[in-house]
Design a protein around this nucleic acid. Sequence first.
DNA 1: AATTTTCTTGACCGAATGGTCAGGTTGTGG
DNA 2: CCACAACCTGACCATTCGGTCAAGAAAATT
Lengths: 231, 231
Amino acid sequence: MPAHPRPNSKKERRQESEKLILAAAEKVFSEAGFGGATMQLIADMAGLPKANLHYYFPTKEALYRQVVENIFQIWLKAADVFDDADGPAEGIGAYIDAKMEISRRHPAGSKVWASEVMHRAPVIQDYLETTLLQWTAGRAAIINRWISEGRMDPVDPDHLLYLLWATTQHYADFGHQIETLNGGQPLSDAQWDAAKENTKRIILKGIGVVDPADSGPSGQADLGSRTSRPE
Amino acid sequence: MPAHPRPNSKKERRQESEKLILAAAEKVFSEAGFGGATMQLIADMAGLPKANLHYYFPTKEALYRQVVENIFQIWLKAADVFDDADGPAEGIGAYIDAKMEISRRHPAGSKVWASEVMHRAPVIQDYLETTLLQWTAGRAAIINRWISEGRMDPVDPDHLLYLLWATTQHYADFGHQIETLNGGQPLSDAQWDAAKENTKRIILKGIGVVDPADSGPSGQADLGSRTSRPE
DNA sequence: AATTTTCTTGACCGAATGGTCAGGTTGTGG
DNA sequence: CCACAACCTGACCATTCGGTCAAGAAAATT
């Protein structure tokens, strides 16, 4: 038992290999879909022989499942900003920011998740029925409380959540389409900020949130707004 | 030359067969993705021998391309309501209705389209760069005109379109997730109406559209469905 | 050093896939 | 009725796929 974990300890190497494989798998699955992805392609992208993949992940499905579960965790974690908020302006605004950031930083994972759900969630249906169902109910309760407190319009919480999910996820899943319509260029930092601000402004105004701290100066469409980065 | 085209004329049978195959293909592609779909599966679902598929569509890709192009046409056609409108309330409202209806009536096609774009549009990239680009520019011009006329807030037209696409498409692509969160039941007619009304109300209000003719029953959101789960 | 455990990998396998083709059937125009 | 074209399909093929395995290499443990 080494007092100082050397850079090449057994466990570390295992974790590094798994991480390497998972990263390659996420990319390949996102680009080709589960059916179109091949273990050979993933192996090549990870720079490992195919048989080595099967040492760490016994089957293609096991590897895929791990990729999906990883992105699901990231997805759920973005909810923290929702819970810790004092009101709808802060909570929903920060949630939009957080989910937009996920679309920006994890486009591959977002696509894998979208693909999984689109194909009737063959491997994470249980998560949908348990974790996600509870999560949604909890957030709907928060929204309903805000509504009853008169801090926002009476909207259906479920459909509001769908609206948030759809809009933010769109920037990842349809990123290629957006890029094409943007002259073939990926969105710049300023454009990402503009996307966030536009989305937040429209939705927050749309649900009747009037927060002096966030209502913006006279509703300009200008993209000079700054972005708050939660840690 | 038969004066009256009999029900089994050559051309009619051909069109019927193609239609049958395309319907089966759309379903299989949407459920399994391009890579996961097999010609055998499509053949079984169409009730035809596999070799027959290859008579009408030489390759899997040709069949897939046809499916994608078909849904793209439906997609584009929904734009008509946008063009014919007198103002943002009518135009955008009707566009949301039309696209929601597509998500409802053509969920399989919508998923195929989403999947195609998600995978970097391998077969319809040219459509994105030509038809869709022009379409988008034209609608952005309309929106900008409405803005300059003071009929809505100054929002970025592109991001507004993304918001519309995302929200409406979500009800098809993530229909399975919505269904799971709805207690495993598909959305009822009333729930679809609620989804439409919620979406329209939030977005139209969010972009500052105030049209007395379209502000719904009794101005303030009466919104029949507080909870979307029927008891 | 000896031994046990963990890791690595080229070679291989049965199954499935997209696609082909030859030969047969059916409809059609003359 | 004939001849031609269009249509249909069971059998077949080359390739690729996910997965296995045995034999070795590299650590960890004793």
